[in-house]
């Protein structure tokens, strides 16, 4: 299965991350104004066990305010994504400006390899979250 995209997956994630950081910049003000308690993790709310992606909101808000240490303490995964975004930003800008053609499709084999690598990173992040919440 070959899927043609106008932008690569890292570029898509970069665009999403840019929006997330923009929201993260004003998120504390919104929560203070509305009295909200943030976005709950359903798995943690139901079972008490954090999910592999717990800490995304906390880390994103910290990154939006330039607090790298706090972000890494909440979710190292977000910091990795931030590094990827920084590396992808010039390519994305060139693509948006029309200076670079659309990305080449990724073969099934390479897609599987990338999926395995990302799965391992997510698993490591889950171990970190389990440790952060005192389960291991």
């Amino acid at each position: 299965m070959i899927v043609r995209r106008m932008y690569s997956v890292p570029e898509h994630i970069s665009m999403l991350s840019a929006g997330a950081v923009a929201i993260g910049a004003v998120y504390p003000a919104i929560m203070a104004h509305t009295g909200g308690r943030g976005i709950p993790c359903p798995l943690r709310a139901l079972t008490g066990v954090p999910c592999p992606f717990c800490g995304l909101t906390t880390a994103t808000v910290a990154l939006a305010h330039g607090q790298w240490t706090a972000a890494a303490g909440a979710s190292p995964l977000v910091c990795l994504v931030a590094v990827m975004v920084a590396g992808t930003a010039p390519l994305l800008a060139a693509r948006l400006a029309g200076l670079v053609p659309p990305p080449r499709p990724v073969s099934d084999r390479n897609r599987r390899r990338i999926s395995v690598a990302v799965g391992m990173i997510v698993a490591l992040n889950w171990l970190f979250e389990l440790h952060r919440f005192g389960f291991i």
Partner: peptide, 19 residues
């Protein structure tokens, strides 16, 4: 529910999934 239970990341899967 499966999409929601992992901090709603399941809803982001179309960003990178082949289909």
């Amino acid at each position: 529910f499966v999409d929601s239970v992992i901090c709603y990341v399941g809803y982001l899967f179309p960003l990178w999934d082949a289909k």
